[in-house]
Design a protein around this nucleic acid. Structure first.
Length: 290
DNA sequence: CACTTGACCTGTCCGC
DNA sequence: TGCGGACAGGTCAAGT
């Protein structure tokens, strides 16, 4: 569920909360979530401190002073929640009811910093993972090597977008937007929202898109992602930011999770269909199939 | 080779 | 009320 805007929101929060802090202790109760048997951990995680927090696509990268980095993929239900000075999760915190007391049954790993503040890696469905890798090797890791360009990068524009899409001309545009090797960061929510914004049916084959379609889609994606980052991302069920806050983007969504409601543009009832194996929200009046 | 589907998980919701 | 099954969606392996 965390897509680019959610991960970016977490990154911004984490950067201010943990940059400069030294890691004293790490605990994991699930080898898939975080294999804490790695010999590297004692040497390169403990007693190292956080240099910065970066993002690549939907992946967080916590760079450490040891020249190692923690790479974190939250997948569907992962959360990173910080608890420490100035940020309290207990009685009186406005989000206490959302976060509850930690650790809880979904906590898979906990980092403890030198000031006793903690970072909880919660993940109900155990799809997410955290790995310790040498910083210099990050770009050689397979999924980073295969990952498409950053949509919000200044070096990335509509022409690049078009040439990336054309790598999969015979697939539906929705499947291609979800493919992280084409462009990085879009998931189900923002695929549906940007396609609605560009008035393109999700099942349209890439080769059937007009140049104008592609231009509109590019603008729509940038607009939707930027708006969502400004709203702190989307909260459906599990997403919260590093301080335990929900995002408000979903209240701005035009089609996602709005099946049976009126399309804000034309009033036609929004339908939920299945495209590329995913639940897909569409206004079949605005978004006509070519 | 290009593309689609199923598995990985667990909590929630719906229908009987 | 209880229970089985569908569903949620990011990614990779397996299947067509």
């Amino acid at each position: 569920m965390p897509e680019l805007p959610e991960v970016e929101t977490i990154r911004i929060g984490l950067a201010t909360l943990i940059t400069g802090k030294q890691i004293l202790h790490v605990a994991s109760n699930n080898q898939k979530s975080f294999p804490n048997s790695q010999p590297d951990i004692d040497q390169f995680l403990l007693n190292s401190s956080v240099l910065n927090v970066r993002r690549r696509g939907k992946v967080l990268i916590i760079e450490l002073s040891s020249q190692y980095s923690l790479i974190i993929h939250l997948k569907m239900t992962g959360q990173l929640v910080f608890s420490g000075d100035g940020v309290h999760f207990g009685a009186g915190h406005p989000n206490a009811s959302l976060v509850g007391n930690l650790p809880d049954s979904s906590t898979r790993a906990v980092l403890t910093f030198e000031d006793r503040s903690k970072l909880f890696f919660n993940d109900q469905r155990k799809f997410g993972w955290m790995r310790l890798v040498p910083t210099i090797e990050i770009e050689n890791i397979d999924f980073f090597k295969k990952m498409g360009p950053e949509l919000l990068s200044k070096q990335f524009g509509p022409t690049d977008f078009k040439s990336r899409l054309m790598r999969r001309p015979r697939s539906s545009i929705k499947a291609v937007l979800l493919d992280q090797t084409i462009v990085a960061g879009i998931g189900n929510i923002y695929a549906d929202e940007s396609l609605w914004g560009a008035k393109i049916h999700p099942q349209t084959l890439v080769q059937d898109l007009s140049p104008v379609n592609i231009k509109h889609l590019y603008s729509s994606i940038i607009e939707v992602l930027s708006l969502s980052i400004n709203k702190g991302g989307s909260t459906d069920k599990n997403y919260i930011d590093a301080e335990g806050r929900k995002g408000s983007y979903l209240s701005f969504a035009k089609v996602f999770r709005r099946e049976g409601l009126a399309c804000p543009r034309c009033g036609t009832l929004i339908r939920k269909i299945r495209v590329a194996g995913r639940g897909t929200h569409v206004c079949e009046n605005c978004q006509k199939l070519n």
